[in-house]
Every structure is written in structure tokens, then in C-alpha cells.
């Protein structure tokens, strides 16, 4: 399916809640089409560093920029939160930190 309003609403909601928890990071959500990760929505200031990729599902991916040397614990925290937010919003239960 082409990126829909539902996709955009989902992505924006996840990003908005994520940024409350990690205000200094940048995050964006994409939807997979073949090899293309199509940008849906994002928040945060561009940090010009390598992004950490978190596969939320086969179709949806989150990218996080923190800094080039993102620690393992930080990656785990980010991954946990984004997957949790995705689950809540995807199921329509709403998020909120």
C-alpha cells in the first residue's frame, strides 16, 4: 500500500512521544517498499551522524540519531521504547510517556 494517512498518523504519534523521552535525539519512521525505506515522519534536530536502525516490523523501521558512538545500553533503551510505542499506536491504544 502507498503511505496512507494512517501510516503518517502512526509515525507522527510515535515520534512525538519518543522525543519527549529523548529530546536531544533525532528520530524518523519509514515504511518498507522493496529496498526503499520510504520516509513517513520524523522529529528532532539533524545530528549528521550515522543512524541506528530499529526494525519495528517487516514493514516499519525507526531510525535514531544520537551520536556516532551510541552505547549498547542506549541502543537497547531506544529500541525498547520505540517498539513499545509502535505496539500501542499500531493497535490504536494511544501512547503517552
Amino acid at each position: 500500500m502507498c503511505s496512507s494517512d494512517k501510516d503518517l498518523t502512526l509515525a507522527r504519534a510515535i515520534c512525538a512521544d519518543y522525543i519527549k523521552a529523548f529530546p536531544d535525539n533525532k528520530v524518523w519512521i519509514t515504511r518498507r517498499f522493496g529496498l526503499r525505506d520510504s520516509y513517513l515522519a520524523g522529529m528532532g534536530e539533524e545530528k549528521f551522524c550515522a543512524a541506528f536502525r530499529i526494525r519495528l516490523t517487516e514493514d516499519y523501521t525507526a531510525f535514531v540519531e544520537e551520536d556516532h558512538q551510541m552505547s549498547e545500553p542506549s541502543r537497547n533503551r531506544n529500541e525498547r521504547l520505540l517498539k513499545e510505542l509502535f505496539e500501542r499506536y499500531y493497535k490504536g491504544e494511544g501512547g503517552g510517556i
Binding site: 519509514t30 529496498l35 526503499r36 525505506d37 520510504s38 520516509y39 520524523g42 539533524e46 549528521f48 523501521t61
Partner: peptide, 14 residues
């Protein structure tokens, strides 16, 4: 670029 969602307006932004 297109495999990280860095396309279109998102690309132009940086």
C-alpha cells in the same frame, strides 16, 4: 539515501 528514508523533503532538509 532511499534505504534510510533520506529522500524528498527529508533529504533537502539536510
Amino acid at each position: 539515501g532511499y534505504r534510510c528514508g533520506r529522500t524528498g523533503q527529508h533529504f533537502i532538509a539536510f
